[in-house]
Amino acid sequence: MLTLRNLGKTYEDGTRALSGIELQVEAGEILAVVGGSGCGKSTLLRLIAGLDRPTTGQVLVDGEPVAEPHPLVGVVFQEARLFPWLSVAENVGFGLRHLPASERAARVTAELERVGLASAAGRLPRELSGGMAQRVAIARALAPRPRVLLLDEPFSALDALTRAGLQDQLARLWTGDRPTLVLVTHDIEEAAVLADRVVVLRPRPGRVDAVIDIALPRPRDRDDAAVETVKHDLRRALDRSLGAGRQGEAA
């Protein structure tokens, strides 16, 4: 579904954000990308989204090279980024302009119901809590039925309780269409609860340090012993990647 070939990004000021990323993500897979700060997680997502151009290599969606935002790829950012002048329903329907009005309305209602916000359809973004706003952002991204959904630390600005609730909700939403999810996060638990596979990036420049498969059935209970083990493994891998990064810097 998603192929990254020798993907690299060097910014104009010479900063090497990413280098030689090779990755294959299957349809319906949930891939988490973790790593310390400055390891190019967000850059990676922006390249896949077509918001930035890579310096080397390419991103393929369904075998097609990505040069600009792809119709089959949706994005949820760290902030909800709702359009403040549009109501909740209008925000969710933003990417559905191509549909006839009646179908669009039905789709918006369905998406809002899926995220549990049907009653907030007429509200304005400024009247929403952070968690509600992020649910609207997820509904907006899912409304056009993308095959790939990119999430850039989508719950990091929320309190722990809301975050856990939204992680579970995302897992439930995924069971519907089963889009490919690429979830950038710094939250080990988030990766352990949601992902099939976790890519650990190593900083300066960002490279793949380790790939960890999580073969646990869903839905997963975050207090389950198996999930705890995965979290433990992930934390160790992450520590190792940071150490490797520091050594790389010293050399």
Partner: peptide, 23 residues
């Protein structure tokens, strides 16, 4: 960041102006 959302929904040129910049 708001303009970027417009780009994610593949708005360009006049459509981006009308639906994002203008409002």
């Amino acid at each position: 960041k708001i303009v970027e959302v417009g780009r994610v929904f593949r708005l360009k040129g006049l459509a981006l102006v009308r639906r994002v910049l203008l409002p």
